[in-house]
Structure formats: C-alpha cells, structure tokens
Amino acid sequence: MLTTHALVLAIMLFCIGLVGLLSRRNVLYMLLSLEIMLNAASLAFIAGGARWGQADGEIMFLFILTLAAAEVSVALGIVLQLSYRFQTLDADAFSEMKG
C-alpha cells in the first residue's frame, strides 16, 4: 500500500510543481518548481524500485540527481545573465525568440 501512496504523493508533487512552473513569472521560482517536478519523478522511480525490489529505481534517481545538478548550474548561470541584461527576472519579458 505504501508504494502506491508514494506514487500518489509523487503525482501530487508533480502537479504542484507544474502549477508553480506555469503560474510564477519569476524565473527563479520557475526553476524551483522544476526542482520539485524532478523530485516527484525521483520519488516515482524510488517507489517503483521499492515495489519490485529492484536496484534500477535508485539508479534512475542517481541519474536524475546528476541531471538536476547539471541543469541547475546551467540554468542559474542563465538566470544571472538574464538579470544582468534585462534587469528583471520576469519570464514574459524574455520573449525575443517570438516566432
């Protein structure tokens, strides 16, 4: 039962992260939301691994961790650069790639 509930928790966390990602305009908060979503995904993997007694869940967690580390370092660099150039962290202000 516990792993099923863990999965429910994971999807709840994912949804909260998604809400945050879509509703916050500050880039920093969007990044935080992304972290939440990544954590939700990790939780799902861990729960799966626990359910089947397999090591693969934890390995996926490790990969997600690596991914998150790389992503955060690059994304924060971009955030810094954006704030230098635009003097704001408003995600909607950065729409120069408009089609």
Binding site: T3, L32, S42, I46, A50, E58, F61, A68, A69, S73
Partner: peptide
Amino acid sequence: LGAQFAAALEIIIYGGAIMVLFIFV
C-alpha cells in the same frame, strides 16, 4: 521506502549542494 542511499544523497546533494547554489544566486 528502503532506499537509504538515495535518502542520504537527497539530503547531501539536493538539500545541501543544489540549494546552496540557489542561495548564492
């Protein structure tokens, strides 16, 4: 859930390293 290693990494890397990065920024 039985993933002690993952739990430790979660605290050390996520709660420690990555969050500190955020704070710095």
